[in-house]
Amino acid sequence: MIDKSFGDPNLKMQSINLSAWFGSKQVLKDINLNVKANAVTAIIGPSGCGKSTFIRCLNRMHELVPTAKMSGEVLLDNENIYDKAVDPVMVRRRVGMVFQKPNPFPTMSIYDNVAAGLKLIGAKKGKNLDEIVKRSLEHATLWEEVKDDLKKPGTSISGGQQQRLCIARAIALQPEVILMDEPCSALDPIATAKIERLVVELKRDYTVVIVTHNMQQASRVSDYTAFLYLGSLVEFGATRDIFENPKNPLTEKYITGEFG
């Protein structure tokens, strides 16, 4: 199955026999998953099933935890990002991330929050940078709300706005993939709706992987859904199939709300 899909231009990322540990505790067991380009892939499952760990393996954030270990491969455009020759910094530039709790940089202005990544790679102040910041904020549907407050601290805006600022921060680097780790779990319903609309928008330009514990959200925004349970991939397929016609009884139980 993996071999067949090799070289598929629609395939952006692949995890192959991906396992992960914290200390001696195994949190992911042999996950094989394909992420299609320009689509939204949702990872669902009860809390503690390893979904956050899984997407943190996709941009090598997992290894930042001191006791963390992993094995297996993660391919990005058919290239193993865990190869010795690959630098995690470069991986993270290509695979951006939005976190569970909005984490704009408190010591930076709204403008600098968006420009920070570009400044790291040598972008100079000027019209060019202003333009990218504006476009990123527009893309994250935040521009109209903050265009007069660009100098204010990134933490001075509401939670929902902060999360969109974090999305703009990721977009500014023009990544290929955007990973979202329960981006709405700390937000109110209105802010959630805005983010959800934005996620659907984003797949035109990016590949999106979103972790959510909210099944309605998965069914609203995603094209593909993976169901993780106790660190194993139980079922993966088109979102409609998963929700309307689950093959595995465990999946059915979960989406009908019998446990979780």
Partner: peptide, 27 residues
């Protein structure tokens, strides 16, 4: 310094030293 700040900085492709210099020390 909260870890979420370090994670945010790593996620936009900062090196370890950059995370320390521009984020940790600044915070």
């Amino acid at each position: 310094v909260p870890n979420s700040i370090r994670e945010g900085a790593y996620s936009i492709g900062a090196t370890k030293w950059e995370v320390i210099r521009h984020w940790v020390l600044s915070y």
